[in-house]
Design a protein around this nucleic acid. Sequence first.
DNA 1: ACAATCGATGTTTGCGCTATCATTTGACTT
DNA 2: AAGTCAAATGATAGCGCAAACATCGATTGT
Lengths: 345, 345
Amino acid sequence: MVRTRNSSTTKRATLADVAKVANVSAITVSRVINQPDKVSSDLCQRVQEAIDMLGYIPNQSASSLASARSGVIGVSIPSLSNIVFNDVLRGIYDVAGASDYKVLLVDTHYSPLEEEKMIRTLLSQSPEAMIITGGDQTRACERMLAKAGLPVVQIMEILNQPLDMNVGFSHYQAGFDVALKLLATGCQRLGFIGARMDARVQQRMAGFRDALQERGKLNEKFLVTTPEPSSIALGGELFRSLLSLSAGQVDGIFCCNDDLALGALFESQRMNIKVPTDISLCGFNDFESSAFVNPSLSSVHVPRYEMGVQAAQMIVQVLEGEAVAQKQRDIGFEVILRQSSRPIQ
Amino acid sequence: MVRTRNSSTTKRATLADVAKVANVSAITVSRVINQPDKVSSDLCQRVQEAIDMLGYIPNQSASSLASARSGVIGVSIPSLSNIVFNDVLRGIYDVAGASDYKVLLVDTHYSPLEEEKMIRTLLSQSPEAMIITGGDQTRACERMLAKAGLPVVQIMEILNQPLDMNVGFSHYQAGFDVALKLLATGCQRLGFIGARMDARVQQRMAGFRDALQERGKLNEKFLVTTPEPSSIALGGELFRSLLSLSAGQVDGIFCCNDDLALGALFESQRMNIKVPTDISLCGFNDFESSAFVNPSLSSVHVPRYEMGVQAAQMIVQVLEGEAVAQKQRDIGFEVILRQSSRPIQ
DNA sequence: ACAATCGATGTTTGCGCTATCATTTGACTT
DNA sequence: AAGTCAAATGATAGCGCAAACATCGATTGT
């Protein structure tokens, strides 16, 4: 049997192999790959041919070890199923990819303890920077990050004491504003349904609650929450719960996200409850479908993609040694009233 | 100023540092981390204390280099925005995480050339296995993968000539079955709207088309496609296009995914077209919302999470040296008829 | 014409870890 | 009691690469 070139049993080619074939030193091959302008064009070409011939692929572990640069940005999000993070990730990947950084992504399942474990894993990969979600890290986790001494961006919410950099918006203010808007449309008995109840959802609820209290419209019974993860199905259930708990008195509901809101809307249709005539609905996150359902769903729009982009840009800037304009950025939100709530009077 | 412990300027602790503190050799520390049962319990404890005291985090690059094991599984998907991949990823992450593998995820933007570049990047991280989407790799990409000689699972579709392992289902058969089912509900003039038109969407269309042709019900004018990415908005547009191109004759539409189908449904509501009385609709992917919209949307259910789980399990099995039962697995699909199509007569 | 300078290339070394092969100790066999 | 073996620990070397420094020839300035 003829020995075929580079079968899978052959060991992966190294810099030295390429160097031998091109008849140059290993460091020259390294330069061709990393700083081609430092090598004369004919040598560059000869080396490139050798690389192609051998199918050489650099060993990033060796490179990281020798240069103390991994080209990795660690990213930690609480959930892969929550599509809210898709847009953020897309922004991060777009910017990171354009600057040749790799992204190592972990999922913490909304648990600070798991987050601590995951961030330890990330740190063992020697990332050059980290993007993490929110501010609920454990003390140990904060210590690890501080000790690692790398740029960190906390995203999704504006924090009082960010570890380093921060891009997000005020969930409290968003909840507050929704309450005011719904009141302005004439709602008198507002309710809230919330699921998962992570820190950000709690802040939305707190803002909503405080606004109602300020206006003397707060009824604690109208706040229905569950630790279960959000889903459309759950939205329908919570909608029914709230209706029965309030004895059908509620005339407007702030749903902690659009999953719940869509579930509530679909359930209202099944129950023959008129939205917004009988009950107004407002969601949060402004999914694409929210603008298209009938009646279209009022929601809070958040520039998620932009948030990912900015977080990654801040990272890249710091890593390239540039100055970062603001270490904390509020990217804002917008309450969008559509057909599921009445017009402001 | 008092010198505080471990400021960010301090270098990261190494095995040797821990060894010195614990008064053992470096290799013992390594063993405590990687094979604790090979070390006596008192030493184990002493070393663990030193690790905690120094906040030692292993350098994975050095470990990979020395052991030729990275613990990384490379995953390549065509799009981060398409939420179809969320469920698959969740399955992969769940299984990989449980076996202490890290996932390195790249996005190819549906481009084989970008895929080639991304897979080169992945390979440079010395992954122990790869999970990639579909079978549209470039020749160069196939060569790289073959040369790397690692376990590869191609997911999302059943391939005629998989590179190695394969988990998916037949998109052709799914399209074919949808056509038969819609015909069985009494539709006479079936149309198709498709976006992005990647390999899998094309297969769905081909199956749909062939089924219609077999039954003598094919009208090429009723197949409307665009290379643009799918969205609910685009679904509405394509719905209108198809209606006008068919002069309103179409009485049933297979939409290449649920985004388009929801867009079509919402648009039909706005146009006062009755679904399913005037037109039947069937989507693909069976999003959660599809079961909840009114009328609920017929769709093709695919066990995506399960697909991710199986792909990762196959990988883990191979890496642990176990035998893999079947290298190719058809996980099937299910056409679910709901209110957006009439009952089968 | 000769030193000074610069660009192009090479040599050496070590990054932090683990594979491999000792070495030591003590328990157990015959 | 000598030999055998296994468990626990250590010493050494090398994984593949790039930083740091060294070398060499060519170009420049005066």
